[in-house]
Simulated assay, not measured.
Amino acid sequence: MTKIKQGSGGPVQFRHRMEGLTSLVQNHRHSFGNLSDIVIPEDGRHRHTFQGITTTADGHRHSYSGRTGLNIGVGPNHFHRFQITTNIANGHRHVISGRTTGNIRIGGMVGYKLIIERIVRQKV
């Protein structure tokens, strides 16, 4: 289960990495990548919330947020399955689905995987 401990190096948190490709819609896909957020206890098990923004494809991007399924397994190697649809952009949505990694340990400040894209200006 996800725990927060106080140590000499600051708080240590355990999260799950989530990344992959969206479903194919209108002849394109987007990449996504984020870490799980808040732990939601449920009947002796738990879920996580998550959120993010996809990479740009076909001139647009999608935001998304949701909750994982309940944990599968226990201890540091447990994981979660997830399946949601993105918010509408450019008149359509994509499905995001997969499974998280096992727990990853994050010390100190918790940061999200940032997607940094190069913008190329072209003369019209």
Rank of each mutant, 00 (worst) to 15 (best):
L70I: 08
H62Q: 06
I4H: 08
A57S: 07
K3P: 06
T2H: 12
H60M: 06
G59V: 08
I72P: 00
N77V: 02
N27R: 07
P76F: 06
H78L: 02
R118F: 09
R93V: 15
S97W: 03
K113I: 13
G33K: 04
L114H: 12
P41I: 08
I84M: 06
G52E: 00
T86M: 07
L70P: 01
N27A: 07
K5L: 15
S8I: 14
T54W: 02
Q13S: 13
G44N: 04
T68K: 00
A89Q: 06
D37G: 14
G33D: 06
F14C: 04
S97Y: 01
H60P: 01
Q26M: 12
F79L: 08
L35Q: 04
D58H: 12
T68H: 02
L21P: 03
N103Y: 07
G91M: 10
R93Y: 07
G73P: 01
G9K: 14
K113C: 11
H46W: 02
M18V: 11
N87D: 15
I115H: 03
Q122F: 11
P41D: 03
I4F: 09
I72C: 05
R81E: 11
F79P: 05
R17H: 07
K5E: 15
T85E: 15
I38W: 08
G59K: 04
D58F: 10
I116R: 15
D58P: 05
T55D: 08
N34K: 01
N90E: 08
M1H: 11
I84V: 10
E117W: 09
Q13T: 14
I4M: 04
R29P: 00
L24C: 11
S97C: 08
K113S: 13
V25Y: 02
R93Q: 13
G111Y: 10
F32S: 08
M18E: 11
I88K: 14
R99F: 00
P11E: 15
D43Y: 03
G73I: 06
F14H: 10
I106L: 13
I38Y: 14
V124P: 07
I106Q: 13
T86P: 02
I84L: 01
I4V: 15
L24F: 10
M109L: 11
T55Y: 00
I53C: 03
D37S: 10
M109A: 14
V12K: 12
E42A: 07
T2C: 11
G66V: 02
I40Q: 02
D37M: 00
